[in-house]
Simulated assay, not measured.
Amino acid sequence: MIIDLPSTTTAQVNTKLVQMREQGGATTLGRVLTLVIVTDDGEKTEDAIDAANEASREHPCRVIVVARGARKAAARLDAQIRVGGDAGASEVVVLRLYGALADQGASCVIPLLLPDAPVVAWWPFQAPARPADDPIGQLAQRRITDSAADRNPIKALDIRQKHYAEGDTDLAWTRLTLWRAVLAAALDLPPHEKVTAATVTGEADSPSTDLLAAWLAVRLRVPVKRVKATEGVGIVAVELERRSGPVQLQRPDGKVGTLNQPGQPSRRVALQRREVRDCLSEELRRLDPDEIYEATLKGLPKITRGRTPAAVPKPKQPAADPPKPSAAEAKAVAAAKPGPARSAKAKTEAKEAS
């Protein structure tokens, strides 16, 4: 069920929520947190709402969407309340702010926050340079960004590293959970040898590839090279060098990975690229600071960048030997060659033939 409240106020929105609860029980009091989504009003807003709806099935919450509209328009608040099948296991309040209100999202959010419940802020696309200093970020215990959705993912990741504060996290980091689990499990298998170096290959603009390389550099304390992939999506391959041979985890198609280890058969592992809703659900499971993510950000300067090794040129095939001439052809060629004076017999035969 969707209820539109054009040109309204937050007090009227709150009153409508209470009426719906009292009259039909459409929204129940089983919410564990408030999720605030901050974005610009547009088509992608619905994608973020869909991801939040799916995540709410694991974490029932109140979702407040702050959709900033045109700043040159007259100051206006258009609200929309979604419950039931249109809101998953949550209640969704969409606030479309126009004019001077577009920059006053925090003031519109505060009256709608659930009492005595934690607040999580999520910027699904463009995020502020300092999420912890943002007015909405100051209301939240956790602040979720997504470097991969930024216009310049690698630059956005550098900004996250420079301005990190406790409670910050990034969905580019959450997408590494399966890779980290498989690599950790592989090192638990014999032979238990020390890793001496590592190489991580991925797309040039993949922040998850940089974070995985930094995580390996921090946890293994070895030199790690970050290589640009010529094909494939996201993270393509990881190689851990050991004395007995390398541990290789490759995922060229973005779906299924192959794990190769010395003395072990090749294993196929599920490494499907994670959807936003799965990553969001994982981040909503914890409200405390992520120390491993913080240490990984500090390890970004430790990785070195290299180029993909050039393809080895194929050796040229030697030219085939020419076919041997027949006896008649050899005799004709020998006769045609200039040389010393012919023998007397040859001269006589030539004279008689003429």
Rank of each mutant, 00 (worst) to 15 (best):
I2T: 15
I3L: 15
S7N: 13
S7T: 11
A11V: 11
Q12M: 11
Q12N: 13
V13P: 00
K16S: 13
V18S: 09
G25S: 06
A26N: 09
T27G: 06
T28K: 10
G30H: 09
G30I: 02
L33T: 05
L35P: 05
L35F: 06
D41I: 02
E46F: 00
E46G: 05
D47N: 10
N53W: 01
S56R: 01
R57C: 13
K72G: 12
A74S: 12
A75Q: 09
L77V: 07
I81T: 03
V83Q: 12
G84H: 07
G88P: 03
S90L: 04
S90F: 07
A102W: 03
Q104K: 13
G105S: 07
A121G: 07
W122G: 08
W122F: 10
I136V: 15
Q138F: 02
A140K: 04
R143L: 01
D146N: 14
D146G: 09
R151T: 13
P153A: 03
Y164M: 02
Y164N: 00
Y164H: 14
E166S: 14
L178S: 15
D188H: 10
D205Q: 14
P207T: 05
T209I: 03
L212T: 06
W215N: 08
V218F: 09
L220P: 00
V227Y: 04
T230Y: 08
L240M: 06
V247Q: 05
V256H: 08
G263V: 02
S266M: 12
R274E: 15
C279R: 12
S281P: 02
E283R: 14
Y293N: 06
T304R: 12
P313L: 07
A328V: 10
E329Y: 01
K331W: 11
R342A: 12
K345Q: 11
K351A: 15
